[in-house]
Structures are given as structure tokens and as C-alpha cells.
Write a protein that binds this DNA or RNA. Structure first.
Lengths: 123, 123, 123, 123
DNA sequence: GTGGTCTAGACCACA
DNA sequence: GTGGTCTAGACCACG
């Protein structure tokens, strides 16, 4: 019944991202069954169609496989899961570096800025 | 006639971000006049309405000021420009940290990951 | 334990097609007994219900006959088997011609395209 | 107001296939604007959502590009269009050959069968 | 029970 | 005006 979605990104993408994170973090294992579309819809407090779209998108990306009449499962292709983790990570770093570069930061300043951020965080 | 916009973000935001970056990097100085809406529209290859919206948005954030009949100018309030730089930077780092945390990375791993990224970049 | 089904077509149809092909190719003869539903299900790695449906469908088409308590058999009506071959073949060619026509190919170009395809295959 | 869809394939795919054919046949040129979602929906006698899905699918395949607030256009990347034609053609021939092979036909028999089919057609 | 498709109707941001 | 997303509710084929 979690209903804390951002307004900027489509909900179906946010849910897909969240599930991908769970898989990458190992909270969901290869071959494990995802909740059914309807179940997930209730849990997330959204319409089943929205979950359907989430699952379709994830299947298109090869993260998930659907077995007819049985449900949707995390792919058993471990290679894909490894790539997924790397891909997600690289995308995030890419965006970060590009944005910081646009602001005129050098690579050293980026690392420095990040460390300062954490130091401030601890206080 | 630059026409390389992403599909995910609104064009007017992308242009605003680009202008903000220029200002933060010092390529545009406090008090400097921005191109007219029409001129900017032609240069960017977009609808003048879109530029209008960009300028409105930037004015709302206090980055630029519109002087009637004269045009749009970078604010002369240096304080605002300093804050702008910090604000943009913090937003970027915030997003980065949150995304990486979602993937299960610790603070140390984030710094490490970033440095690895740069090392790979140099090769 | 063959488990290489397409996602687009129903599994029970794919199995029916496969069996029909075997019959048409002469690998299964008129009057020959098909594997039992359970046996076939295990061999194919699918639910017995699915095989049941396959057999029902094939019986509906007159390709097989069910003898109570004895099992399912390829029909002994040779006429039906002849027609089956022609029917299957015509369906395939029909689909091919219609699809190619949709792409703007003339009859000559279809034959030509097919021959080119084989030539490329041999290299 | 054409409403002659097969029951076997999803409507949104059938429409996508039809549009692709038109593009491949040259009836729609690179850069040409497609009807708006709503317009197309009325013309086809289906729900706008269905057309939306058609366009999304085609964009995913690179056949079509959407410009924000302006509409959906045939891609101007001629290379993609060439590949599309080849790809569609090869898929059709592939399916044909595989199906015929399953029935036990040799390559020569396939060509022969096709030519006979056309001869019968002319009578 | 499962996922897949479709409709009807609505709202939104963007140009 | 455009496309994009979402809801509500329905029906279907499949296993």
C-alpha cells in the first residue's frame, strides 16, 4: 500500500526501477517468482495495467521472463543480471559526471565534492 | 540550429539547464544580456513559446531579470549566483547518492566506483 | 524435457503442429498410437492439461482418434492425411504470399527472393 | 472506419505491420507525418490507447520518431528504413522455409510448390 | 489462477 | 493541437 511516487517520472518506470534495484541488491534471486500483476497492483496501490506495463518493460529488457499462465519470474540468465548491475551503475555515474562537467567541475573536484558531501552528512 | 534534445526532459528545462550552466561556469556574467526570445528560438531551432517558458522559469528562480522593452539579463545579485552554483551541485550529488544507495552501494563504494570510472576513462 | 517454445503461439498449438508435421512426414503412420497424455506431458515438460488440449484440437480436425481406454491414435483414414498435407502446405504458402504481397513484391520477385535466400544459405 | 482485424494477432501489432508495409512500399516517405493518435483511432475504429501502443512499438523499433507536441513522423534515417525492408522480408521467408522444412519439403520442392501455387492462381 | 489485450474516459505537460 | 500516462473495468486464452 506504498503510494509515494514522484510526479516527474512515470509510475510504471519507478516501480520497474525499484524492482531492478531489489534484484541487483540480491533481495530477489534469479528464477524467483514476482508477485502476480494483480497482487502487485494492490500492494503498490496502483492499477493492474500499470504493473502490467512495468512487467512488459522489464521483460523487454530481459530482466524478467513470463511463463504462460504461471506468472512472471526473474530471469535465470545470471549473465544478464550481472550486466544489469553494471549497466545501472554506469548510467548513474555517467549522468553524474556529465552534469558536473557541465557545471565546470574537473574530475578531481567531483571526487572532492562527493567526499565533502559525505563529511557534511556525518555531522 | 542545435537540435539534439533528449526526449525524456522537457525542452524548456534542458535549455534552462544549459543557460544556468553557462552562467555558473562564468561564460555569462552578472548583468549580461541574454539573446532575445526570437533570436534564441532560431538558434535553438525551437518554438519561441518554448524559450519564453525557459526565461519565465529562470526568472521565477531569480537567475534572470526581465527589463521591460530592453530584454532579459542575468541577475546582478551575485549572492543568488553563488547559491545557484551550490544548489545545482547539491542537487546533482543528491541524485547520484540516492540512486547509488538504491543499488546497495556504500559511501566508500561510491567514491571508489567514481574513481574507477575515471581511471577507465583515461585508458 | 524439450522446453523451447515460442512465446507468441499457444503451446498446445505448437505441439499440435509438431505432431502434424511428424505425421505428414511419415514418421508417424496411420493407426499408430500416440504417447499417452501423461507421458507426452512429461516428455514435453508441460502441463497434462495442455497435451489434452492438443489432442482435442487434433481430434477436432480429424487427424487423430481417441479409443476409449486404449489411447489416442493417428487416424486410419488415409484420405484425411493426404488432405492434411495439402492443407498445411497451402496455409503456409498462402501466408507467405500474402505477407510478401503486403510488402509490395510481385509473384516473380517472391520466387526470385526465395531462390536468392537459398543461394545465400549455401555459402 | 476499417474494422477488419484478425482475432489471432493483437490489433496494435496488425496496425503497426500495416503501417510498416506502407512505409516499406514507399507510400509513406521518410520524415512524413503520421496521422495523430486520435485521428488514426477514428480512422481505424479502435481506441486511441491502441494506436498509442502501435506508435510506441514503432518508435521502439526506430521506424518512427515523435516530436513533442508536434506528432509522430516516419524516421528520416533512411538506413533504418532499408534495414526494415530487408528485415521484414527475411522474417517472412525464414518462417516460410522453416515451416515447409518441418513438413519435409526440400528447397527445390519449396520453389516448385510456390510456382505451382501461382500457376493455379492464374487459372 | 496467470498474463495479455482492449475500451472508455480522464488528466497532464508540451509546443 | 500533440503524445504520454493512468484508472476502472472488462474479456480472453492459457495452464
Amino acid at each position: 500500500m506504498t503510494k509515494d511516487f514522484q510526479t516527474s517520472k512515470p509510475i510504471y518506470i519507478q516501480i520497474a526501477d525499484h524492482l531492478s534495484s531489489q534484484i541487483v541488491r540480491g533481495e530477489m534471486r534469479a528464477g524467483e517468482k514476482l508477485p502476480s500483476v494483480r497482487e502487485m497492483a494492490i500492494n503498490s496501490g496502483v492499477n493492474p495495467n500499470t504493473i502490467q506495463r512495468t512487467y512488459s518493460e522489464m521483460e523487454r529488457m530481459g530482466i524478467v521472463e513470463t511463463k504462460r499462465g504461471q506468472g512472471t519470474f526473474v530471469t535465470e540468465n545470471e549473465q544478464v543480471l550481472k550486466e544489469l548491475k553494471i549497466c545501472l551503475q554506469t548510467d548513474i555515474i555517467d549522468a553524474f559526471v556529465q552534469n558536473m562537467k557541465e557545471l565546470g567541475f574537473s574530475q578531481e573536484e567531483m571526487v572532492e565534492g562527493l567526499e565533502q558531501y559525505f563529511r557534511r552528512d556525518q555531522e
